[in-house]
Simulated assay, not measured.
Amino acid sequence: MSTFQQTFQVTGMTCAHCVAAVKEEVGAIAGVTDVVVDLASGRVTVGGGREVTAAEMAAAVDEAGYELAS
């Protein structure tokens, strides 16, 4: 079970490929053990052994080609 769980809002996702790309990049953040992407709402829930910073999340989402909502 993840110690920390956070939810972020991501914009620009429209399909299953978007979900897979975001899961891959966010899952590569150090300490992240679980990533759940809700395409309909744009919510990305991250779980892991430590808190993920907004900057880390923004960088990962940007790498996938999307944006973290402000």
Rank of each mutant, 00 (worst) to 15 (best):
A28W: 10
Q5Y: 03
T11C: 03
V44C: 02
A40K: 14
E56C: 07
V22G: 02
A64T: 01
Q9N: 08
T7G: 04
A55M: 13
E25Q: 13
V36Y: 03
G12D: 06
H17Q: 04
V36R: 01
V10Y: 05
G48W: 07
G47H: 04
A60Q: 04
H17K: 04
L39P: 12
M57E: 12
S41W: 11
T45S: 13
R43L: 09
V26T: 00
E56S: 11
I29V: 11
Q5V: 01
V61P: 05
F4L: 11
C15T: 03
H17N: 09
G12C: 09
S2E: 14
M1R: 14
V10K: 00
E67K: 02
V44Q: 01
A64Y: 10
V35L: 03
I29D: 09
A69W: 13
V52Q: 05
S2L: 07
R50P: 02
A59T: 09
T45I: 08
V37W: 00
D62F: 11
E25R: 11
V22Y: 01
Q6C: 08
D34Y: 15
A40D: 15
A60P: 08
T33W: 15
A20D: 06
V37N: 00
V32L: 02
T3R: 10
M1K: 15
V35C: 03
C18W: 00
A60G: 04
A59Y: 10
K23G: 06
Y66D: 02
T14C: 09
E67V: 10
C15G: 05
E67N: 07
I29S: 07
A69Q: 10
C18E: 12
A16D: 12
G48E: 14
V52H: 07
G12L: 05
F4K: 04
T14R: 11
M13E: 13
R50K: 10
T3Y: 14
T53L: 10
L68W: 09
V26P: 00
V37P: 02
S2G: 09
V19F: 09
V36F: 07
E56Q: 13
V37C: 02
H17C: 06
T11M: 06
M13F: 06
M1D: 10
C18G: 04
L39E: 13
V61R: 02
A21K: 02
E67Y: 11
A60W: 15
F4W: 15
T45D: 12
M1C: 09
R43N: 14
V22L: 01
E25S: 06
V19E: 12
R50C: 03
V26A: 00
M1P: 10
K23I: 10
I29P: 13
C15V: 09
E56L: 03
E24T: 15
V61G: 05
A30G: 15
I29K: 11
A58G: 04
A55C: 12
S70W: 15
T33H: 12
V19Y: 12
L68G: 00
D38R: 01
T33P: 04
G47P: 10
D38V: 01
E25P: 01
E63M: 02
A58D: 09
A20H: 05
S70I: 08
V52A: 12
V36D: 06
G12I: 14
M1W: 15
T11F: 07
S2P: 13
T53K: 11
Q6L: 03
V10E: 01
T53E: 13
F8C: 01
G42F: 09
D34R: 08
A64V: 01
T7S: 03
Q9T: 10
A55E: 15
G65I: 15
E56R: 02
